[in-house]
Design a protein around this nucleic acid. Structure first.
Length: 194
DNA sequence: GCAGTGATCATA
DNA sequence: ATGATCACTGCC
């Protein structure tokens, strides 16, 4: 994608101005966090380099009553992180191959999280984690610079109508919860720098 | 359409 | 210890 020199400069300044989302952002209902993560920028530090990608697809997992959520099975070693403070990563392996990246939401002892399904050019939660070298070593870590994986607000805006809601993917086992529109998607073309 | 892949959890 | 399940992907 070609840009004029002045546009490139403004993008760099906008990036430098980005601020890291903190616990107050995540300590809200999963549906609110899932919606507001669209357009925020996932940042992964690997060595001295930073990989960045605007989030374009999320899913909310509400709590123990949500039969699509791992938390509906109760407190286990795997789900422990979801019972902890908001703003920590919940990373787990699925089908023996794929790492899934979630961020914990709500309050302590309210196990809820948002699955990050797509960012930048990467569609699909497993392709995203593969591209960003995300695995179990991040499970339980804070979404902060200290962990090497965090999310920033870089001022990207989108039209309200650009956001689509659909049922969540791959949770047909969850009865009527499978049909609830807890998946949020925005077309990358609808993201706008400010 | 469906195989691959192995952690996780319930059951025993 | 064993077996079922799985918030997916890639290849048929």
């Amino acid at each position: 994608m070609r840009e004029t020199p002045s546009k490139s400069a403004s993008v760099r300044r906008a990036a430098a101005r980005g601020f890291v989302l903190d616990r107050t952002f995540y300590a809200r209902p999963a549906l609110v966090v899932a919606r507001h993560l669209l357009g925020k920028v996932l940042v992964r530090r690997i060595g001295g380099r930073e990989l960045t990608a605007p989030i374009i697809e999320t899913e909310a997992y509400l709590g123990p009553h949500d039969l699509a959520s791992h938390a509906s099975k109760g407190r286990t070693p795997r789900t422990e992180v979801m019972f902890g403070p908001a703003g920590c990563w919940y990373v787990y392996l699925i089908y023996g191959i794929h790492w899934m990246l979630n961020v914990v939401t709500n309050d302590v002892d309210h196990p809820a999280a948002v699955l990050i399904r797509g960012a930048g050019e990467w569609t699909g939660p497993a392709r995203l984690t593969k591209a960003m070298s995300i695995d179990k070593s991040l499970n339980g870590a804070e979404a902060a610079r200290s962990s090497g994986l965090w999310i920033e607000d870089r001022g990207i805006k989108m039209a309200r109508g650009a956001i689509q809601r659909t049922p969540r993917i791959g949770v047909d086992y969850a009865g009527h919860w499978a049909a609830r529109p807890y998946r949020f998607v925005v077309d990358a073309a609808d993201l706008r720098e400010v």
